[in-house]
């Protein structure tokens, strides 16, 4: 099989994931896009391992590791997103703007802060 096929597929998949990471507003969707990017890397690893016929199977072993790390990453990432949601009442990346230089977002932050207590209460109800 032509090596270009998996390689190009991996490259395109990676770029799709990249677009998702950069363009999605919801944090959970961002994490999903990250998964896409990781899978693109996995595909590359497997394809090159198969091509090279490595005696140690390093490509596939690393793929397994990546999958594991990805699982850990999605767990932690979702925990962080949940925390942000609980504190801010939203999972929108656009509205998490504490890094802003200046006070344009100050109002939004305050609103978010005021919404925080409401979110907390409701979350408690859910929990």
């Amino acid at each position: 099989m032509h090596l270009v096929f998996p390689a190009v597929l991996a490259a395109l998949l990676f770029c799709v994931g990249l677009y998702g990471v950069l363009a999605r507003r919801n944090a959970v969707l961002m994490l999903m896009s990250v998964e896409l990017m990781l899978n693109a890397v996995n595909l590359n690893l497997v394809a090159f391992d198969v091509w090279l016929r490595d005696a140690l199977h390093s490509g596939q072993a690393l793929t397994l590791f990546t999958i594991t790390v990805a699982a850990a990453e999605i767990g932690l990432g979702l925990a962080i997103v949940l925390l942000i949601f609980r504190n801010r009442g939203t999972a929108d990346i656009d509205r998490v703007g504490r890094l802003t230089d200046g006070d344009e977002k100050a109002d939004g932050d305050e609103k978010a802060d005021s919404a925080e207590t409401v979110g907390d209460d409701e979350m408690e109800g859910v929990g």
Partner: peptide
């Protein structure tokens, strides 16, 4: 994001195709 992604895709595909044009995997 679209611009960055397209640029990255173009770069990566060009590089990959250029590098592995004549490579086959023995399955």
């Amino acid at each position: 994001a679209l611009g960055v992604a397209l640029a990255a895709a173009a770069t990566l595909v060009t590089l990959v195709v250029d590098a592995f044009r004549c490579t086959w995997i023995d399955l």
